[in-house]
Amino acid sequence: MAKVKSALLVGVGGQGAILISKIMSNGFMKAGYDVKQSEVHGMAQRGGSVSTQVRWGEKVYGPVFGRGEADIMVALEKMEAVRYAEFLNPDTGVAVINDYAIKSTTIASGAEEYPEGCIEAMAKNFNTIAIPASDIAIQLGNAKCMNVVLFGAMCDSLGCPEIDWEQIVAETVPEKVRELNLKAFRAGREAAAKAK
């Protein structure tokens, strides 16, 4: 428990990265870890690129880490994984990526192009798990639970086998969407096990 571990969650404003960080923090707190979590509000919410950091360990000081320091990176959108790749530890880090593209306004207006091969490039450089979390969520009947699908995919890479993540998800999400989110969680976990 001594070493502080760090996770980076990236995506596009409004995708629901905050719920993932909430589930993680709840689990770590219950297991007795010290937790710090950092996010940026304001301009970033208007469809911009967003990132959240979660750190846990026996005692966590800094709420914000830098390049090469993430043990795990979760990308809710695949181009964002590439944008933030420098934060991932190149030797031991794991990238968990939603195989899904969201065009930015510069791409929509034709000023730039959406890059090909984001996931392949990540996999070439890092230990990468890519799953179609958005497609899985749509199949489950609600595109919004993509974040919990992705959390299911990442939870076994957090290195905390003592935490019952399914139970934590059940406790963290609102009651009326509990069943949906539990299905999403299990589907994501399964998909990640297959993708490894």
Partner: peptide, 10 residues
């Protein structure tokens, strides 16, 4: 080798 596009707020 990937040219990441900008994603400004809008």
């Amino acid at each position: 080798d990937i040219a990441v596009a900008k994603r400004p707020p809008a």
